[in-house]
């Protein structure tokens, strides 16, 4: 194995989108979008409602043809192919199970249309059903099984095709909160063990942060940033990303001596990067606790300082409303024209 071949293999992305553009109803929905997904990687396409996620996914799957740009799957240009001829498989938002077929027949369908031989179909379908723990519902109709089970049938129907690329359009949005966490872990485990290049569309940042290798944040038909979850959170490349992923206090101005002062650009401070104590110290400014809202495993505390009002997340001992003390910014993000300039660390 020479170094040359390794590099070759590594640089052929599982999916490459190049200058992908689509207008619908006279509006540009996806705007010269570029994205590389590594082989075997799970990438979350995260963005607010209406930003063009589904449109992008439908172009990748082949249901929509782009006005311009290219779609390559595993190094092959598939832009001109219809969905039936692309090596991708999609799990639909409402699952799209065929109500007149049993679970088995739903899952077997992709193999049947490919003319796979009967025994082979039975073998592969049973294998996939076992994989998603649905063997006992083999002969049920979609209407007879629960939402979570339907979701897994849809997944099985995609997996049985042994696709090069798995596309999931908000696969969990129809499940209740608890089931969502459980199913997303199952999906993640399966995807890892099978090593399928996967794109999961979601507008739920928790979901994106917890199950993907990397996250692509989409906004108004463009990709704002592609990074690992921790990098995305620590160094949001644009103001939009900072606000959309996690939560920030943001102010016009600059940070000087621990205080927000008038100046060019924007300052974004994550609530957990604000430290409140009763004693004065370097970089801390006098602050009054205005309100305290319990938010589960932390509290949201609103602190009023002479320069700005800060929203802070605090754990441990929580001060009462009206408490006077000192609040310090531990870390802040500085933006110019919407783009990240630097991460400002407060003094320890």
């Amino acid at each position: 194995m020479t170094e040359g071949t390794t590099t070759m293999a590594d640089t052929t992305p599982g999916l490459r989108l190049a200058a992908l553009t689509k207008s619908l109803g006279g509006r540009r929905i996806v705007d010269s979008l570029a994205l590389d997904v590594h082989p075997g990687e799970m990438l979350a396409l995260l963005g607010p409602s209406g930003c063009g996620k589904t449109t992008t996914l439908r172009m990748i799957a082949g249901f929509l043809s782009p006005d311009a740009g290219r779609v390559e799957i595993a190094g092959r240009d598939v832009t001109a192919l219809g969905p039936e001829r692309r090596p991708s498989a999609m799990v639909f938002q409402q699952y799209a199970l065929w109500p007149h077929m049993t679970v088995f027949r739903n899952v077997a369908y992709p193999l049947r249309v490919r003319g796979v031989d009967r025994h082979e179909i039975t073998r592969r379908v049973d294998e996939v059903l076992a994989l998603v723990h649905l063997t006992h519902h083999r002969d049920s109709r979609p209407a007879q099984i629960s939402g979570g089970e339907q979701q897994r049938v849809a997944l099985a129907r995609a997996l049985v095709q042994q696709p090069d690329l798995l596309l999931l359009d908000e696969p969990l949005s129809n499940l209740d909160a608890k089931l969502r966490v459980q199913v997303r872990e199952e999906i993640r485990t399966l995807q890892r063990s099978l090593g399928i290049t996967t794109i999961i569309v979601t507008h739920d940042q928790d979901e994106a942060l917890s199950i993907s290798d990397r996250i692509a944040v989409m906004h108004d038909g463009r990709i704002e940033q592609v990074s690992t979850p921790s990098e995305l959170y620590a160094r949001p490349a644009t103001e939009f990303v900072a606000q959309f992923v996690g939560s920030v206090n943001s102010y016009e101005g600059v940070l000087r001596d621990g205080a927000v002062r008038p100046g060019p650009g924007t300052i974004a401070i994550r609530p957990e990067h604000i430290e409140f104590r009763l004693e004065a110290r370097d970089g801390a400014l006098p602050a009054v606790v205005r309100s305290v809202v319990p938010r589960g495993h932390f509290h949201e505390v609103v602190l009023e300082r002479e320069d700005v009002t800060l929203r802070a997340y605090m754990t441990g001992r929580i001060p009462d409303e009206g408490t006077r003390g000192w609040a310090r910014v531990q870390q802040a993000l500085r933006y110019r024209d919407g783009h990240l300039q630097e991460v400002v660390e407060g003094q320890a």
């Binding site: 039936e84 999609m90 199970l97 065929w98 992709p110 249309v113 129907r157 095709q161």
Partner: peptide, 27 residues
């Protein structure tokens, strides 16, 4: 018939004639 049911069949690799026969007619 919801679009998604037809799209799912296309995604599964079925040609139009087959989708008509196995999905649309039964539904």
């Amino acid at each position: 018939i919801p679009d998604a049911l037809i799209d799912a069949a296309r995604d599964a690799g079925a040609p139009m004639s087959r989708i008509v026969r196995t999905i649309m007619l039964p539904l």
